[in-house]
Nucleic acid binder design. Structure first.
Lengths: 133, 133
DNA sequence: ATGCCTGCAAAGCTTTTGCAGATGC
DNA sequence: GCATCTGCAAAAGCTTTGCAGGCAT
């Protein structure tokens, strides 16, 4: 239940927070910008401010409930952090986002970082693709 | 010679364009934001506007003379497009940017895109790392 | 009761753009 | 000479923040 998630994160259970969580859980698209979430809520008759959506998403991110992706195109997109690590593929024609995970790439990345005397804290891999003709 | 590069790109040879190219060629850091380039030029006594730096960089990018990287932290960084394709590693402690290339990762990426019926148009791989203790 | 939230409006930051004058060819 | 540039200031787009009132507990 979402209320627990919020409490566990030290956040009071408020209407805007529940609404945003619910949109992220039940919307057909898994990856949404703050603005998209905001509009979805307005359209379903909810009253809240865009600033609140941003604030709530930032708190959720810090709490580990959602993750933020900076794809090309200005707006960050958020997704529920209910899955294990994965990377993304963005279709340049439809905007569709596909998630994928490949352990071999993960291993190679660690190997490369190590070769330079580093260890990986975080990484970002995005493929911008087009349907193959 | 830089003047040729500019002409070839259909750009008039102007002072701001030459200056920006020279900074990119001769600065100790290879990856610079528009603002950093702008400051470097001001500091060396050149007169030009920040808007011009942005305009010039965008034109250079379109002409294939520089490439733009969107690392975390708001500002895009530019580098001379004088090398073959490579990816980046950014040290979270020093900000140092290291370039690397691994054909195995490239192959895996193509393989994955293909599995989903796509072909890769572009991709972005950035490792955020820390010195290994 | 009180400390955490929210909405609104304003501000912040990076980047882009309109316009009038300047400059390369 | 004329199209292309440049600088300046203003605008744009996304996101954050200050503040005064509102709500959860």
């Amino acid at each position: 239940m979402e209320r627990q998630d919020l409490r566990k994160a030290g956040l009071k259970v408020t209407s805007p927070r529940l609404k945003v969580l619910q949109i992220l859980e039940h919307s057909q698209q898994r990856h949404m910008s703050a603005e998209t979430i905001y509009r979805a809520l307005l359209d379903s008759g909810e009253e809240l401010g865009l600033a609140t959506v941003y604030r709530v998403l930032t708190q959720f991110e810090r709490a580990g409930l959602v993750s933020r992706n900076n794809f090309e195109g200005g707006q960050a997109v958020f997704e529920l952090a209910d899955r294990t690590h994965h990377d993304h593929m963005v279709c340049l024609e439809t905007g569709k986002v596909t998630e994928f995970f490949d352990e071999r790439i993960e291993v190679l990345q660690r190997e490369i970082a190590e070769k330079y005397g580093y260890s990986i804290e975080d990484h970002s891999l995005v493929l911008y693709v087009r349907p193959k003709k």
